[in-house]
Design a protein around this nucleic acid. Structure first.
Length: 306
DNA sequence: CCGCGGGCCTGAGAGC
DNA sequence: TGCTCTCAGGCCCGCG
């Protein structure tokens, strides 16, 4: 949440920053979950007192009544679904937020104006990519920064959550109880595409992105080029490999969430961005390869991933 | 319905 | 040094 965009931080500066200020990778489920846990301390139970959008759109335009529907509302809960953050409001509306590729939040503490009694903060601390400001009743201002503007903010009316296009097509949450080999195998049934493409599809499993798909497949020792349906159900049972993959997905995500407070450079990943390096699996002599699938980089070990 | 490829967007890094 | 080009990948849309 306190992530400083890479684009505003030189390597020299970055290495001297405290861990919590270092650059987040592209936000996938673990990063969004980490943001949620931080942000909810400032949002839940607090009222949004003032909203400022500093441009007309991110990936899509803000609703015309964006500020009006947020101001005065108390946030009852901050939830996560896949890579979306959902702030439930007392009005029944839900504020939907997505970090896209380069989005981050930071919290700026306000100071009380002696004369007006209002909270304020130094506007000179804003930069060109600070697009949305949410000032809370505590006096803290939540600043959304997003250089590439692939992020999203929208308001969903009470009762419209289930029919929302983006949300309704999402597949199972991999960290929910009930996500297992059967769940995964059913979703892979009939998929002629590769495991890499299938796992990147938010309708199959929600929340994985390019990095954790690569990591999960490596952990499960499965080739990204393998046909997805080879792990589907047969005779009502998941095929071999589905168990390993379901577990690997959960383990990779849980590890990432648990280690979010630390930054270990490339070592936090075993294959992603490791092209040409030795496979880290114990006893494996393979070398990590990079290939392109569906226009995206895939990293894997051709020796231990089958 | 499915899968693929292109587009959006900016900054980092490569190459000349 | 400074310019131009390519690449990165979230999600969406249109095409076949």
């Amino acid at each position: 949440m306190t992530g400083v965009p890479a684009t505003h931080t030189s390597d020299a500066e970055r290495s001297s920053l405290p861990p919590e200020l270092r650059v987040l990778p592209v936000p996938e489920l673990p990063e969004v979950e980490a943001v949620r846990r931080q942000l909810r301390r400032v949002m839940e139970g607090a009222r949004i007192v003032r909203v400022e959008t500093r441009r007309a759109n991110l990936r899509s335009p803000f609703p015309s009544d964006f500020a009006a529907r947020l101001e005065g509302q108390r946030v009852s809960a901050l939830r996560r679904r896949a890579k979306y953050l959902l702030a439930d409001l007392e009005s029944g509306d839900t504020l939907l937020m997505h970090l896209g590729m380069s989005g981050s939040f930071r919290v700026v503490k306000g100071r009380k104006d002696a004369v007006q009694g209002d909270f304020y903060f130094e506007r000179s601390r804003l930069d060109a990519h600070d697009h949305v400001l949410l000032t809370m009743s505590s006096g803290a201002t939540i600043v959304f920064n997003d250089p590439r503007r692939f992020g999203q903010m929208d308001i969903i009316a009470a009762g419209a959550l289930d029919s929302n296009r983006a949300l309704s097509s999402l597949g199972p949450e991999p960290l929910d109880r009930g996500f297992d080999a059967m769940t995964l195998a059913r979703k892979l049934k009939g998929k002629k595409t590769t495991l890499k493409a299938a796992l990147s599809d938010q309708r199959v499993v929600a929340g994985l992105g390019n990095i954790y798909v690569c990591e999960a497949l490596h952990r499960a020792r499965l080739s990204p080029k393998r046909r997805a349906s080879t792990l589907a159900t047969a005779a009502g049972e998941p095929r071999p490999g589905a168990e390993a993959l379901a577990e690997a997905i959960q383990d990779v995500l849980k590890d990432a969430i648990a280690n979010k407070h630390r930054y270990q450079g490339n070592d936090r990943f075993h294959v992603y961005d490791h092209e040409g390096q030795r496979c880290q699996r114990r006893g494996c002599q393979g070398t990590i390869k990079r290939i392109v699938q569906a226009g995206r980089s895939t990293f894997f070990c051709p020796v231990c991933q089958r």
